[in-house]
Design a protein around this nucleic acid. Structure first.
Length: 717
DNA sequence: AATTGTACTTAGGACATAATTG
DNA sequence: CAATTATGTCCTAAGTACAATT
């Protein structure tokens, strides 16, 4: 842990040196700008290693079958009828009654499911043992009976059949996105100054100026790239006149605007209860209206139904595009996706959509192209939705299948370390890292378009150091690189001799900024993995290792004797082990030191209190010994209880303190939400009688409803 | 095989809200 | 009850993966 502290700033400097060097080189290389720079170039270097290489013909062509086919082999639910929706595809009721649920349709679904007794909970793709399915059914049916009017009745999508043919839905209706509110011009007394003189800006230029003004307090408005990008884009919004006048950003004075916005946000905070309530209600109305869609007879929550407002782009880390103007999205930019036979969303009066399409092979409702990277953004459903939940469940099932063959795969890559083909050795070493260290795959990235970050396959020579011996350990590899979101990965790991020797070989005659694995990329790696197991990709290892670590840590750490808070601490520790494995970091909270001190003084106070209580107990005992009457005996009992109570409180505080200290820069949320099979946690809760609310908050319980309903205490990942 | 395009998951931080404390 | 602190939600960037195209 102590090694993996964030030293972002310190590190950046170091990175910088290499990077500039690298940039120059790359610029030279890829004049004809391809997406990833030129990857063929890197191949020429290892002529010496040509002796290692041999023929290239080992790609198993016969394995090229479509996944669907493979799946239907072991999947048992292949005889299914679509999704089981024999009924009309959409709910006819009008949206304003908020009643999209139709018990009638449910019944027919249930029936169908019941026919398919043995397999109802199986993924068609894989062979899960479904032992715990039976007992559930009774409850389910009971629930339905009394459901009648209740549209809020929880729909257990996980008890239904799934689409298998790439179809994501049969019916989809929604109201379209909510656009960002239009720009509100500044009141005339709020002025912008250029070169000390007030200057009235055009609406367009003013809006962009306010974006900058709002960020004035941020450190990055002082950064060169940020300022440069901003100024360039700002000038594009200016009138010819403004453009000729405003030529130097340092002469721009936004402070009045900035003050104005600060005052505004103060005013917002100081609003009366009633006004706040009004706003809340208004929000709730928009949520009800735009925050849901109907997908296949069910009303489902949309994740991000608001279009991203315009502003200045701030990427993470050292992003070359920071400060650029993220433009306002208009209806004309929007592609709407919905059923042909649904009530199509209306564009705002006087506008039109870019396109309305009916593609049920995708899950998104709305999309648009963003102007910074030119990538597509989507509006999709909430994690609690069927469409996300199924996928999530499936993800964990894939990881569980990996569990069954991981030994074989490990043996295989260990063998491959000895291969006479360089590309195979590289593949094997990379896979070893991905498996052992839970590294990300590491796709190629567009040079100069994004921050310089890497994953396993894109590691460069500069990112590792080899130590034949270090701190009493042999063959130590030191990793030091920026990963996703420019989070630093720093780790020293002893590796097996063969791995070490291979790394030395891979690094021979290379520059610092050359790829470590020059004969490997994610697509090669994944193709290989696909051959080892259906559905296997690099990221499955992260899921697998995270989940198996949680399960194993929980086993190890949970102490039968301990009370609930202590058990929860154990859970958090297990969770933390995973977060450390996956390198899920966070910036230490700004108030961390202070709040830690506060907690410590509370603990001290509690200690004093405990001492007092003990003293009182002692004297009460003495008293009782002398007097021997009922009253004094009772007093002893009360004192005893008091001591116990205070002891418990102290314990709780201490637990809290350790927990917090250990969590200083570790973020538990990401692994909990994305990597840990929720059934492990649910099973653990059930086993130890811990309310699941202690582990998952409301949102999380909604997302993991399937697991909470499905897993019993014997669940094994 | 390289390149480009698309869809979807994973990620940390800002901000809002709720809970706790003095 | 106000102030502080913890927790939860929102936001959207940044990854992975794979399909389509050249």
């Amino acid at each position: 842990l102590s090694d993996s502290h964030k030293h972002k700033d310190k590190y950046k400097e170091k990175e910088h040196k290499h990077k500039d060097h690298r940039k120059d080189k790359e610029r030279e290389k890829s004049k004809h700008g391809s997406r990833y720079g030129s990857s063929s170039e890197k191949k020429h270097r290892d002529k010496e290693k040509e002796r290692m290489k041999h023929k290239d013909g080992s790609t198993d062509k016969h394995k090229e079958k479509k996944k669907e086919k493979m799946r239907s082999l072991d999947g048992k639910v292949k005889k299914e009828k679509e999704n089981g929706f024999a009924s009309p595809q959409h709910v006819k009721s009008e949206p304003e009654d908020n009643f999209y649920y139709s018990p009638k349709y449910e019944k027919s679904l249930k029936r169908q499911r019941d026919d398919d007794d043995e397999t109802q909970f199986l993924f068609p793709f894989q062979d899960i043992k479904s032992k715990k399915t039976k007992n559930k059914k009774g409850e389910v049916l009971d629930g339905k009976k009394k459901a009648k009017k209740e549209p809020e009745e929880k729909w257990k999508w996980w008890e239904e059949e799934r689409y298998t043919d790439g179809v994501k839905w049969k019916f989809l209706e929604h109201k379209g996105p909510v656009f960002a509110p239009p720009y509100e011009p500044l009141p005339s007394h709020v002025k912008f100054y250029y070169d000390g003189k007030p200057m009235k800006l055009s609406l367009e230029a003013e809006e962009v100026a306010t974006f900058f003004a709002k960020m004035l307090d941020h450190e990055y408005t002082t950064k060169d790239i940020f300022r440069k990008n901003f100024f360039k884009d700002w000038r594009k919004e200016m009138t010819a006149e403004e453009k000729s006048k405003i030529t130097d950003l340092t002469k721009c004075d936004f402070t009045e605007m900035s003050e104005y916005f600060k005052a505004q946000s103060e005013a917002r905070k100081a609003m009366t209860k009633e006004d706040k309530q009004k706003i809340k209600e208004e929000n709730e109305r928009t949520l009800q209206q735009y925050g849901f869609c109907i997908m296949d007879n069910h009303r489902e929550r949309i994740a991000n139904f608001r279009i991203e407002p315009p502003g200045l782009f701030r990427g993470r880390g050292d992003h070359p595009k920071m400060g650029m103007l993220k433009r306002r999205i208009r209806p004309e930019d929007i592609i709407v996706n919905c059923s042909k036979d649904s009530k199509h969303p209306e564009p705002p009066p006087g506008t039109r959509w870019k396109e309305v399409r009916h593609d049920n092979k995708v899950t998104w409702l709305v999309s648009w192209t963003e102007n910074i990277q030119g990538s597509i953004k989507y509006i999709m459903l909430n994690p609690s939705s069927r469409i996300k939940g199924e996928k999530d469940w499936q993800k964990y099932e894939t990881a569980r299948r990996l569990k069954k063959c991981v030994d074989h795969i490990r043996n295989q890559y260990r063998e491959d370390w000895k291969s006479k083909e360089m590309r195979i050795r590289q593949r094997a070493v990379a896979l070893y890292f991905i498996d052992k260290l839970a590294l990300r795959a590491g796709n190629e990235k567009e040079e100069g378009e994004t921050a310089d970050t890497v994953g396993c396959c894109s590691l460069r020579v500069e990112h590792i150091s080899l130590y034949p011996e270090k701190d009493g350990q042999e063959y130590v590899v030191e990793f030091d690189f920026l990963g996703k979101d420019s989070i630093r990965y720093y780790n020293k790991v002893p590796v097996e001799k063969r791995v070490f020797k291979n790394l030395q070989l891979f690094m021979e005659n290379k520059e610092l900024d050359d790829d470590l694995f020059d004969r490997l990329n994610t697509s090669i790696l994944n193709k290989h993995l696909q051959e080892l197991m259906d559905g296997l990709t690099a990221k499955v290892f992260r899921t697998y290792n995270a989940s198996i670590t949680l399960q194993q840590q929980l086993k190890e750490l949970t102490n039968v004797e301990e009370n609930i808070p202590a058990k929860i601490l154990s859970y958090n520790r297990a969770n933390r082990a995973v977060a450390i494995l996956c390198n899920h970091q966070r910036a230490p909270p700004k108030t961390f030191e202070k709040s830690m001190q506060n907690l410590q003084s509370k603990i001290d106070a509690k200690r004093d209190q405990l001492a007092d209580a003990k003293r009182e107990l002692k004297s009460a005992k003495a008293d009782a010994k002398v007097r021997k009457d009922e009253k004094s005996k009772k007093a002893v009992e009360t004192k005893k209880k008091a001591v116990q109570r205070v002891e418990e409180q102290l314990m709780k505080l201490e637990v809290q303190a350790t927990d917090r200290e250990e969590n200083k820069q570790i973020a538990l949320g990401t692994s909990k939400l994305n990597y840990l099979d929720p059934r492990i946690s649910v099973a653990w809760c059930k086993k130890w009688g811990i309310p699941v609310e202690k582990i998952y908050n409301k949102t999380q319980r909604e997302k993991f409803a399937w697991a909470i309903d499905m897993a019993d205490q014997d669940f094994e990942f």
